[in-house]
Write a protein that binds this DNA or RNA. Structure first.
Length: 318
DNA sequence: CGCATTTGACCAGCGC
DNA sequence: GCGCTGGTCAAATGCG
């Protein structure tokens, strides 16, 4: 795209490349921004930094994610209809590590995307592993010997571990683990190379739900939390069942993403709002066609939320 | 007591 | 083959 993206490319690319360690990680972006970017241009430039106002990294981050209206593939990703304005401190990064080779939109919900979402690989490699481990343990009982600490994994040689579709995004937040309406159990934490902040691993506590998410802070900007969802929820959000959320929770990781946006957004500081208004003023055509408080599908009092929520709800209902 | 978190160890994949 | 790193497991521990 244009050269004005270059100055901001640096730290953001570093940040994101920490995520995209394998070619598969790039898949989604490569496809989504095909024609505007080289295949290895992870997100940089081509995520349209139009309307950048100043050197605020956060703001550019916003722009990169939600300037969907100017992206030729915005509808490919979010489905047809309204486009959301960059009115949140959360930054979308789509990662699809599907091994199916297709362009699985990382939004595993037909209501959000017309792309077919196929089951990717086995149900849950980790769970399968555990399951196999349990079998191995059962076998160990027979010989009466001290069982090995780790189960034997009969995975075939050269068989690549299948990956669930992933969807990652960045959120400016002081808390690491954002509420998204689902219940998560932390099952691990690891130090991340080149980052002083550990990465936490969470798994949905709902039985038979294989969704996982990773949460880590950006070492570039510690105020940014990077959350990566993997897999699809097989159930509704408990929060939705309780009727405590505006989000319709269509049982997808995208729904989790959206609800997280929503929930988190209520904690955002107001300066962001100022930035966004200014962005609209300077570059209205690249942003939402609607004023921040007058989105046609949303009551006027939601403030910035409506730039995100109506879009989500609208598509979730379809 | 049941559930969640912590944490050290293990394993797979990848690059050299 | 080896080492590094990410991802996961599971026992120990904490907490309500």
């Amino acid at each position: 795209m244009s050269g004005n993206t270059v100055p901001y490319q640096g730290d953001r690319l570093i940040l994101d490349r920490n995520y995209a360690r394998s070619p598969d990680d790039h898949l989604f972006f490569s496809q989504r921004f095909e024609g505007t970017s080289g295949p290895n241009d992870l997100l940089g430039a081509d995520l349209s930094f139009t309307g950048c106002l100043n050197s605020s990294g956060d703001y550019h981050v916003l722009e990169s994610s939600f300037d969907l209206s100017s992206s030729p593939s915005a509808e490919d990703f979010f489905g047809h209809g309204d486009v959301v304005a960059p009115a949140t401190a959360t930054v979308g990064i789509a990662i699809d590590r599907s091994t199916s080779g297709g362009v699985n939109a990382a939004t595993p919900n037909s209501s959000m995307s017309s792309s077919s979402i196929e089951a990717v690989g086995d149900e849950d490699s980790g769970r399968s592993r555990k399951y196999l481990g349990e079998i191995a343990k059962a076998d160990d009982v027979d010989d009466g010997t001290e069982k090995p600490k780790k189960p034997i994994k009969p995975r075939k040689k050269g068989e690549k571990r299948p990956r669930e579709p992933r969807f990652a995004f960045m959120t400016k937040s002081e808390v690491d683990h954002l509420e998204d309406g689902y219940r998560w159990r932390k099952y691990g934490q690891k130090a991340v190379k080149n980052s002083p902040y550990p990465r936490s691993y969470y798994r949905c506590t709902t039985p038979k739900c294989s969704v996982k998410k990773r949460v880590e802070r950006s070492h570039q900007d510690p105020s940014i939390v990077i959350t990566t969802y993997e897999g699809q929820h097989t159930h509704h959000s408990p929060a939705t069942i309780r009727g405590s959320s505006h989000v319709l929770a269509p049982s997808t990781s995208m729904a989790g993403f959206c609800s997280e946006l929503l929930l988190h957004h209520r904690r955002l500081p107001s300066p962001l709002d100022v930035q966004l208004r200014e962005a609209r003023r300077l570059s209205p055509q690249s942003l939402s066609p609607y004023p921040a408080t007058q989105h046609p599908q949303c009551p006027p009092d939601y403030g910035l939320l409506q730039d995100v929520v109506p879009f989500v709800v609208h598509h979730a209902k379809q």
